[in-house]
């Protein structure tokens, strides 16, 4: 609802207190807004930002799951002298060929929506954090005794920041192959690149530690998104927590399997 014009009482719209006036005003403003503008306007509200947070979160969860499953090609080793994960990478880049030019489908249907989801997620987080900080005002002067809020839920913004920083490193390391980050990088040779990168112990620790942040983040996110989107049914509510447990564990274990494979010399 748009802000009321000055002069109208804010609140006080109980039965018989100018309710008719309010209604008339509401209907005239509503006719003028297009459906698209209205839905877009929802993002201006905090609740709307939570919807955006949850929907972009779903896209990002789908991505981490897909990425994790894709990584498992590492364990298929080589076939006819070509590493299976190299073929998988090439498969992603040549999606839609020969109907579409190489990498077009990858960019338009995967990387672009993913980047958009990241940006929306980060913007909503940023602006909600600011609004929440403002809503607290003066802090409690004595220590709080939290009962339900857990480490994951209370560190969402920090685990989020860690994931973004890790992502930047990861893109420079194994996607773009920035010389300073991964001097052994050779385009298209996914297997050799990751074996080289994870062979450096500080990098190995970085990759392993980042999974902890990711795990906490998606564990809270995978349950919280149901609340934000209002997916609620007393019969199924307990499965929301179970889903979050299973999903985040599967993703973290799957991702960790690659550095572990390198450490155990299974991947070399």
């Amino acid at each position: 609802m748009p802000p009321l014009p000055a002069g109208l009482p804010r609140g006080g719209n109980g039965p018989g207190c100018g309710n008719g006036r309010m209604e008339a005003m509401a209907s005239t403003t509503r006719e003028r807004t297009s459906k698209l503008a209205r839905i877009g306007g929802v993002y201006r509200t905090d609740t709307g930002k939570k919807y955006a947070m949850a929907t972009s979160g779903v896209v990002l969860l789908a991505f981490v799951l897909g990425h994790m499953i894709g990584n498992l090609h590492v364990f298929e080793g080589a076939h006819d002298g070509v590493y299976r994960i190299d073929e998988y990478g090439e498969g992603l880049r040549s999606l839609g060929e020969p109907l579409f030019p190489r990498t077009l489908v990858l960019w338009v249907f995967l990387r672009l929506p993913l980047t958009a989801a990241f940006l929306v997620h980060i913007h909503a987080a940023w602006s909600l954090t600011r609004s929440n900080k403002a809503a607290r005002g003066a802090k409690y002067q004595s220590p709080r005794n939290y009962l339900a809020a857990n480490y994951a839920s209370r560190t969402m913004r920090w685990s989020g920041v860690i994931v973004v920083l890790f992502l930047l490193w990861h893109l420079a390391d194994l996607t773009i192959g920035v010389e300073a980050v991964n001097p052994g990088f050779r385009r298209g040779e996914v297997y050799q690149n990751l074996v080289f990168s994870l062979g450096r112990w500080p990098v190995w620790i970085l990759y392993t530690a980042a999974q902890a942040a990711l795990g906490f983040h998606i564990w809270h996110g995978a349950w919280s998104l149901f609340q934000s989107l209002g997916v609620n049914n007393p019969r199924f509510n307990r499965f929301r927590r179970i889903f979050a447990n299973v999903f985040s564990t599967a993703v973290v274990v799957g991702f960790l399997s690659v550095p572990l494979g390198v450490a155990l010399d299974v991947v070399r």
Partner: peptide, 21 residues
């Protein structure tokens, strides 16, 4: 109206669950 009035004054829900407790 109630949600929008609420948002004028208060923060947003991050599903900590502290309120319920």
């Amino acid at each position: 109206r109630m949600v929008e009035t609420m948002e004028e004054y208060f923060g947003s829900c991050t599903s900590h669950g502290e309120c319920e407790k």
